Computed example of a mutant assay.
Amino acid sequence: MSALPAKPGLRHSVSEWYSNNHQLSETAQHERHVSNVIRQEGRSLRNETNCQTTWDERDTSRRLRDRTWDVARCKEALEACAQKVDQEMEALTLTKEQTEQALAATAVPLEVSSECLTLRDGRRGYELVVDPVDEQLKREVELIEKVQQVLQQHIDKSFEQLCVLQEARHQLTADLQNKMDALDIDMSCLSLTIKSPQISLKTNPTRIPSGSSTPQEWIQFSQYNMANAQEAMQVSYQMREEMSLTRAQLQNELDTQRRAAEFALRKRNHHEEQARDELEWQIKNTEDEMAEMESDIQGLDADLQAKTASLKLAHTRLENRTNRPGMDLCRDEVQHGLVNEIHQLEATNTALKQKLSEAQLSCPLRCSHSSLLILGTGF
């Protein structure tokens, strides 16, 4: 027995069929409308995002160009400041070398003045006097030592200032190198496009790197470095002016003192030459007087010898007349004359001997004084 066909499913009415078809049509129409709206919104969004992306890219490029211009201007300012620092360092180094040369130039005058004092200490006797030459030479030595101390202080200060300038130059160099690196990076970023092969997605590119600074801090940092360098250069300039002025003033003082010492020495030499001429004149007169005294001593001695012979004659005559006999032994005028002659000759001999003794005693004194005069002339 064959099986009966299965019963069809739930049957719908014609109205339900129309209603279902109408619903399907409305649903399809709604879906198409929604799709159309989405498509229109998508197209609008694409247009807006394309415009926004293009604008953002161009705005970013503009900002990069502005930033590179700012960095380039700042780099130029740093380079100009660094160049001025280099020039100031060269000028200060030159001034320092000139001051060192001035300090070295005082060594010989100091040795000369000290040697002069040492040599003058070798004077003997009454020539070892404290005269104006000694005073001027001692003042010159003290002044040179003071000048050396002042110049050395300036040299030390200039060396310290060179270190300050070097540190400022180092800060400028570091800042300048950072500006150059940043400029290279920004220029590289400016050259990138969407077709560049170097571009790629990065992990968290919007993060804020550690050590980041604000634009105000960025410009203030460079301004501080340049201001610090300007201040160091100003101090260096004032120091150079002060060193040049001090060198000129000290040189004038040294020249003035040198001329004063030379004048005192010339004046002293003139006085010594006058004293020497006076002593030489005294020596000549003393020697002449000694020669005359020697001649007079010889004359006195000759007269004494002659008077002794006359005395012998008178003694002999008087003694021989004592041998007269008898009444002829008369104390006549001859007798009285011989006695008076003997007394006169004895008095004369006594006077001659006394004067000869005085003359002989005065000769050693004159010789001694003449020796002192000769020593006084320095011969």
Rank of each mutant, 00 (worst) to 15 (best):
S114P: 03
K355C: 02
T93D: 10
A182C: 10
L143C: 00
C367L: 13
E140V: 01
R32L: 07
V235G: 01
C81K: 07
D181Q: 11
I199D: 03
D303V: 02
A261T: 11
S13K: 04
A314R: 09
A77R: 07
K355V: 07
A107D: 11
H33T: 11
L4C: 05
K7N: 07
S244V: 12
E140T: 12
R63T: 10
L250G: 02
H22M: 04
E346T: 03
C363H: 15
L356R: 00
I144M: 06
T256F: 06
N50I: 13
K157I: 05
T54V: 13
C163W: 03
T214L: 02
D186G: 09
Q29W: 07
E97Q: 13
R331K: 15
E262A: 14
R276W: 04
T106I: 00
V37C: 13
A168N: 12
T286K: 01
M290H: 04
H154S: 02
T256G: 12
A3S: 15
T54G: 08
E333T: 05
E273A: 10
L201R: 05
P364V: 07
A6C: 10
D59Y: 10
R317M: 03
E231S: 14
L24C: 04
S25G: 08
E287A: 10
R73I: 06
Q177W: 07
T49K: 09
E16G: 09
N225R: 01
E287M: 11
R317H: 02
T68M: 13
L151F: 03
H30F: 07
V150C: 01
A291G: 13
Q166G: 14
S310F: 06
Y126P: 02
M187T: 12
V85T: 08
I185Y: 13
L318R: 06
W55V: 13
T322I: 02
L318Q: 03
E262Y: 07
Y237V: 12
F379H: 12
